[in-house]
């Protein structure tokens, strides 16, 4: 996803909210100040502003759908401009010694794990917003305005809404009703996605409790659109002179590399992984 597209997505709720406020104010003024003389010339701009958000205010209430769209939409957009998948990151390998005598020995398939394909993070459908069946409502361009279509869409939404809450997440998992904002609100990554990745990394992380110095490491991670690790950086600790910090960072970075390819939710993203060695080594 490009930075511009990401920014545009992040602004959409704000614009919707602003437009909704306009409508609210207009309605309030219309109801409570019916006798207010309205200049004829000002009616045109007011109508344009007031009618558009009528639809958007509805969408704002259907937050889970909107959030899902933010995740799903950018992925194909991001993939499109990269027609050929980039070559593997490993630099050119001259291999001046082509003979591979070991190849003659049938390599016994290692029973360990030939390709570290991480288990898909637990799907947790209850928390994650279901795929939106009402995508078409987002598809039409907004440069035309059709009152009939608007009315129809409102009526469809009101008809279909009773059947949806059964699957929808309730309570604090919903951004609209949670007492505090979710960490992953508006990012398209649910807590269960994060938990799934955490479990995977817990299995891959060979914690370093044997140096005599316990070092917690935070790895800043950038994942490309194919789920590969673009960047895994422990703040330079992996190259530090402090051997305990360096060893711990090396092991943490190895774990995040082994977790590739990353699940779709994490692709094209940058995030942090905290390797809490103090807790891990205390529990062993």
């Amino acid at each position: 996803m490009s930075a511009y597209a990401r920014r545009r997505d992040s602004l959409a709720p704000a614009l919707i909210a602003a437009l909704a406020m306009h409508v609210g104010l207009f309605v309030a003024l219309t109801i409570f100040h019916p006798a207010l003389p309205l200049p004829l010339g000002s009616a045109v701009p007011i109508n344009i502003v007031s009618q558009a958000p009528t639809t958007d205010s509805r969408q704002a209430e259907q937050a889970p759908q909107t959030q899902t769209a933010q995740v799903e939409a950018p992925v194909p957009q991001a993939k499109a401009p990269t027609p050929p998948p980039p070559p593997p990151p490993s630099p050119p390998q001259p291999r001046p010694t082509p003979p591979k005598p070991l190849k003659t020995v049938p390599p016994p398939k290692p029973a360990l794990k030939p390709t570290p394909t991480p288990a898909k993070p637990t799907p947790a459908p209850a928390v994650k917003a279901p795929p939106t069946p009402t995508h078409p409502s987002k598809a039409p361009p907004k440069d035309t305005f059709d009152l009939n279509a608007l009315a129809a869409s409102i009526s469809r939404a009101s008809h279909s809404s009773p059947s949806r809450p059964a699957n929808a997440a309730r309570g604090p998992t919903r951004a609209e009703t949670a007492p505090v904002a979710r960490v992953d609100a508006g990012q398209g990554i649910s807590q269960s996605d994060i938990q799934g990745l955490s479990q995977l990394l817990n299995r891959l992380w060979l914690k370093n409790c044997d140096s005599g110095t316990i070092v917690n490491v935070t790895v800043r991670l950038a994942i490309d659109n194919d789920g590969r690790v673009l960047l895994a950086d422990a703040g330079g600790r992996e190259h530090a002179g402090d051997s305990a910090a360096s060893a711990s960072a090396i092991r943490a970075i190895a774990a995040v590399h082994q977790a590739a390819p990353y699940a779709e939710e994490f692709r094209g993203r940058t995030f942090s992984v905290n390797f809490d060695a103090a807790k891990a080594c205390a529990n062993r």
């Binding site: 994060i194 955490s198 299995r203 992380w205 060979l206 992984v273 390797f275 060695a277 891990a280």
Partner: peptide
């Protein structure tokens, strides 16, 4: 908000 994954068990 920044996404943070906590890993506190390991093997």
């Amino acid at each position: 908000a920044d996404i943070v994954v906590n890993v506190d068990q390991g093997v």
